[in-house]
C-alpha cells in the first residue's frame, strides 16, 4: 500500500497550520487597529519641541 498524499495526518497538520496562520493575521490586524485607535485618540502624544527643551 502506497502512502497517499492527503493522509489523515496531513489534513490535521494542514488544519493546524491554517489555524495558526489565521491567528497570526488576526493578531496583526488587532495590533494595527489598536495602534490606530491609540494614536488618533491622543493616548500617545508626542511632546512638543518646547516641552522637551
Amino acid at each position: 500500500m502506497s502512502i497517499r498524499v492527503t493522509h489523515e495526518i496531513h489534513k490535521r497538520r494542514m488544519g493546524r497550520n491554517l489555524g495558526v496562520a489565521l491567528l497570526l493575521v488576526a493578531f496583526i490586524g488587532i495590533v494595527f487597529g489598536l495602534t490606530v485607535v491609540k494614536v488618533t485618540s491622543g493616548d500617545f502624544q508626542v511632546p512638543k519641541v518646547e516641552e522637551m527643551n
Binding site: I3, I9, G15
Partner: peptide, 21 residues
C-alpha cells in the same frame, strides 16, 4: 518513513487545531 509508522502516529493521535482550542 513507512506506511505503518504513519498509521501508528495517527492512532496515537495527532492533535488538530480544535484540540488546542
Amino acid at each position: 518513513m513507512t506506511d505503518a509508522s504513519i498509521n501508528t502516529q495517527a492512532d496515537l493521535g495527532e492533535a488538530q487545531f480544535g484540540d488546542y482550542f
